[in-house]
Design a binder for these strands. Structure first.
Lengths: 247, 247
DNA sequence: GTTGATTTGTCCGTATGTATA
DNA sequence: GTATACATACGGACAAATCAA
């Protein structure tokens, strides 16, 4: 029986075999393939199933152990380390930390980088400012219970929000950082959701494997007067997050 | 000049260099880096910028051409290939055909299959009926301008919507089919959006390549009295559709 | 219309990394 | 540990197409 026509790993794809195997195992876990006892088949069985060498399976498992997806115990077997999927609400009052309040004990935002630059056509149009006006860009990472959940790029008008980077760095919260700049309240005006493969930089920050999928939310927040305050593109790890749209 | 410390590609990561370069270029396109004339810098310039060989850049470009992101013309240059994505609105009044009214001349729904079955726990909970109550399941495909856009599985309470399959088959519209069953109006109560790789059946129906991504929307529609009428799981081809959440 | 500069397309060879046996 | 096969990356040379002086 040519059992491997569907299972066969592809070579010369630019993705190392062990990474493809890791993806497959992760996918299998996601679709409940090993739900019975939460235990992975032995390395030799996996090697046979995928039509590859046992050492390649071991590389894949090592990576998944490193990621926290699996837990290997010598002499006993390899087991699934179960995690929940976070549900992230999108509404007029969307805020990261509040949205996950009931789902994670520990929620925090990190500032990875920031820069002052001129607005690209896309950013300028979103923020309603002239092209090439100065803006501040924040590169941020959000974690819940120690796991990276989303990676965002945000733009703010530079004049109005000159100290936004420091404010975010110290508070880890956009809500607090905006409050420091006189924005007591803000509303989500629009959100465009799409999905694609994660890019290399996001793979690293979100601790994802190549081929992983990100949910992309491009959003505009406005103050109570309707003036744009924040334009952002957030990439959510699709295997850890779902978005809930409610009225 | 160590100009490449920030730009340098990483080796021995299990991700081929040309793939990392392709990601970088795709990202650049997404952030509007080449918006001026929609033209990529010459291969030699990209090679220098990334600190790699021109041939490696060429591999990356070849992959992006294959994806439909770029278009290369000998002697002229390499250009960004803009593709049009349908924007599908999600709101309290979400309806497929109306949502795409301004974006596609031709919109239609096809009934692929239908069955009468008993409600699974998930379906029963969503529709607010006892488990194992009879329901009708519709398998539908939606197209816009001749391109498959989404593939949906819908469940309806069997008693109340006994002729829903025929009504949908003849009209190609859920709105019309529900009206035939006395539901003059309905509202979107909740939508959960996630993303994953397409399953093989959906690949065929949506005419997608293996490894393609689908946006999954699990939704509940209710009548004006708040009674559930339709529970559905819709898979959108992620490279053809984005979802717009607006107030 | 010709020439030269620019840019993509193709071919060669070599070195190293990855996976298998 | 060794041998083999293939994929990846680099370097150079030249052909083919385009465009402007």
């Amino acid at each position: 029986m040519p059992a491997n026509t569907a299972n066969a790993m592809e070579r010369k794809t630019g993705i190392a075999l062990w990474r493809q195997v890791a993806d497959r195992i992760r996918q299998g876990i996601g679709s409940g393939e090993f739900d019975g006892d939460g235990r992975l088949p032995p390395e030799t069985a996996l090697a046979e199933r995928f039509g590859i060498n046992r050492h390649t399976v071991r590389s894949a498992i090592a990576a998944l152990v490193q990621e926290g997806v699996l837990r290997a115990e010598q002499g006993r077997g390899t087991f699934i380390q179960r995690r929940r999927r976070f549900t992230y609400p999108i509404s007029a009052r969307t805020r990261f930390s509040e949205g996950l309040r009931d789902q994670a004990r520990d929620r925090r935002g990190h500032l990875l980088a920031h820069a002052r630059e001129t607005a690209s056509p896309r950013v300028a149009e979103a923020l309603g400012i002239p092209e090439d006006d100065p803006v501040i860009r924040l590169e941020t990472l959000s974690e819940a219970d120690g796991r990276p959940v989303s990676r965002a790029t945000s733009w703010f008008q530079a004049e109005r929000f000159s100290g936004i980077a420091d404010a975010f760095a110290s508070s880890g919260s956009i809500t607090v950082a905006l409050r420091d700049h006189g924005v007591a309240d803000y509303l989500r005006k629009s959100t465009i959701v799409s999905a694609r493969h994660a890019e290399s930089a996001d793979l690293a920050d979100l601790k994802l494997a190549p081929g992983a999928i990100v949910l992309v939310a491009v959003a505009l927040n406005v103050d109570p007067d309707g003036r744009p305050v924040q334009f952002s593109e957030t990439r959510f790890a699709a295997d850890r997050v779902e978005l809930s749209v409610s009225e």
